[in-house]
């Protein structure tokens, strides 16, 4: 897949190294502008900026004036066998166009089917059929949005029987067929490894590591005997260790702290951002 292909990645090392980024949450707005040091870029939830409300659009313009921005979509439902929602794709495309980012990201998941919105990311079966639908939808998204797309691994507490591929095989073929990069959520990887009983290092060994452009990291929670990516606590040691391994082995261009619950003051998150930057720096991913 050549670099000129719309929405495809080319060589990920040709993308700018953004460094240590933060998932933007509105509660941090004041603090962010009081002290921008230590935040190399922001990942924004594209869905939160689709409104034509002038207040929302001026917020976007303000963020854009001060930080590199990476749009992260939640509800494109790339895995929907019924195809993409053209109106949603259009709204998403307008947000991405307004930002003109080095890349944007979405999930390997479906969020709606037959008029029902699930309100969350649901896992695809690891089958050839699912892969075909996913690739067709990604090609449609790439035709509409020329910026390179990177795809994120999600968590799932269970898998239905009938898988034909392992997840790394699925991701390898997916990236080859679409030219997309990967957004490796290391917390999600460890949560799945714990819930579905597999070895995260073996998973990593089988992944197309040269395709990994960005990571997500954050804390997790345990509910009953299930691990949950609740995005609600400080990043734990096993996640830092895996992040360091990923930084050493993949041509990372950015890492994003993805805190969504129990959001503390920004000052409390800064040490995590600093630690991530240091991991990337030590691995030679940025200065």
């Amino acid at each position: 897949m050549g670099k000129a292909e719309r929405g495809a990645l080319g060589q990920s090392t040709e993308l700018p190294a953004l460094g240590s980024g933060l998932g933007y949450r509105r509660v941090h707005r004041g603090e962010l502008f009081l002290d921008r040091r230590g935040i190399d870029f922001l990942e924004i939830v594209a869905d939160h900026f689709m409104s034509a409300d002038p207040a929302v659009q001026s917020e976007l313009a303000l963020l854009q004036a001060h930080f590199p921005l990476i749009p992260h979509g939640l509800d494109l439902s790339l895995g929907s066998a019924e195809g993409l929602d053209p109106a949603y794709l259009d709204r998403l495309a307008r947000v991405v166009e307004a930002i003109d980012p080095p890349w944007w990201s979405e999930h390997i998941a479906y969020t709606r089917a037959d008029g029902v919105a699930i309100g969350h990311l649901a896992a695809l079966p690891l089958t050839r059929e699912a892969l075909d639908f996913l690739c067709a939808n990604i090609h449609a998204a790439q035709r509409r949005i020329p910026a390179p797309l990177i795809l994120e691994n999600i968590t799932t507490p269970f898998r239905l029987p009938g898988d034909e591929l392992t997840e790394p095989q699925f991701l390898t073929e997916l990236t080859e067929r679409t030219g997309c990069g990967l957004l490796l959520d290391v917390t999600n990887l460890l949560v799945n490894a714990a819930n579905l009983s597999f070895d995260p290092s073996e998973y990593l060994d089988q992944l197309p590591l040269e395709r990994v452009v960005q990571t997500h990291y954050v804390g997790w929670a345990r509910r009953g005997d299930t691990w949950v990516d609740d995005h609600g606590s400080e990043t734990p040691e096993p996640v830092w260790e895996l992040l360091a391994e990923v930084a050493a082995r993949c041509p990372l261009r950015g890492m994003v702290l993805e805190r969504d619950r129990n959001i503390p003051a920004l000052a409390e998150l800064r040490p995590e951002l600093e630690r991530a930057r240091e991991i990337g720096r030590k691995a030679g991913r940025w200065d």
Partner: peptide
């Protein structure tokens, strides 16, 4: 797959 996703979404 479309029918399976429709059923699962409804079950969810």
């Amino acid at each position: 797959l479309a029918r399976e996703q429709a059923l699962l979404a409804r079950l969810f």
